[in-house]
């Protein structure tokens, strides 16, 4: 039942944790990166001329927003490949990526609102990007809801893949339509981050992007391994139950 996967996934049912040398290094890099971003973002970089201290939120906001798009792209890719190849690997990968993606989307929204409060004076404006991100968030919450419905594995995988695709196809349309809708009512979009990034600020942003990419990867690998073990456990229990029934059937003979 269990298809073969890449060589890095040679985990067995008896594994007690989901760490590996690779993820430990990755986790260390991510932690160091976070510390560096915190130092650079809060101490080393200057206040921005127009935004003031609020600019510091962007060192987190922009990286998680990028991570969000990457995560949902991976989910869509996993969905397509599942439909094509029907391998458990891609379903589990799509699910793990979507979980982290929803987390990043939530962070994007929260940091965006925190940035908006001092910049616009309110937490929420019906800005194109904010609105389309909120819709994206809700769509993938729906995706996770579908994954959470207990069902036979192949059925559940199929449903998840379909919802993943339906949601992903919507991303550009939602973005475009919301953008267009707002641009009709207000002359210029106020969400444009047109700060002039000097050397150090740009460097901080790049470190932030790399750090949150590492965190994404770390989380996805761990979530993937947990889900993979769950799959194996299900298959294992099923095999055991079948063996037991067979044994029972043979006794009275």
């Amino acid at each position: 039942m269990i298809e073969s996967v890449g060589q890095s996934e040679r985990v067995t049912v008896v594994a007690e944790h989901t760490g590996s040398p690779f993820t430990r290094v990755l986790g260390g890099v991510a932690l160091a990166g976070l510390a560096l971003v915190a130092y650079l973002g809060l101490v080393a970089t200057p206040r921005e001329v127009i935004m003031g201290d609020a600019v510091r939120i962007l060192y987190v906001h922009v990286p998680v927003a990028i991570g969000m798009y990457v995560a949902f792209s991976v989910t869509a890719l996993g969905s397509v490949l599942w439909l094509w190849r029907r391998s458990v690997f891609w379903d589990v990968a799509a699910g793990a990526s979507a979980e982290v993606g929803v987390l990043y989307t939530g962070l994007t929204l929260v940091t965006g609102m925190l940035w908006g409060r001092p910049t616009w004076g309110v937490y929420w404006v019906w800005d194109a990007r904010l609105t389309s991100t909120a819709l994206l968030f809700l769509m993938f919450v729906g995706y996770l809801a579908v994954r959470g419905i207990p069902a036979e594995r192949s059925v559940r995988n199929r449903r998840a893949a379909v919802v993943g695709l339906v949601a992903f196809v919507d991303v550009p349309v939602v973005h475009y339509s919301v953008d267009w809708w707002r641009s009709l009512h207000q002359p210029a979009t106020i969400s444009k981050i047109d700060a002039e990034l000097d050397g150090l600020m740009l460097f901080t942003l790049v470190v932030g992007i790399a750090t949150f990419a590492a965190i994404y990867l770390w989380l996805v690998v761990h979530r993937f391994r947990v889900a993979w073990l769950e799959e194996q456990l299900d298959a294992h229990e099923l095999a055991e139950a079948v063996a037991e029934r067979r044994a029972e059937a043979q006794v009275p003979a």
Partner: peptide, 16 residues
């Protein structure tokens, strides 16, 4: 489940 999945997806139709 259907409202949660369906309504966000058709948001562009609503806008358009």
């Amino acid at each position: 489940l259907l409202p949660l999945l369906f309504l966000p997806v058709v948001a562009p139709v609503m806008i358009g």
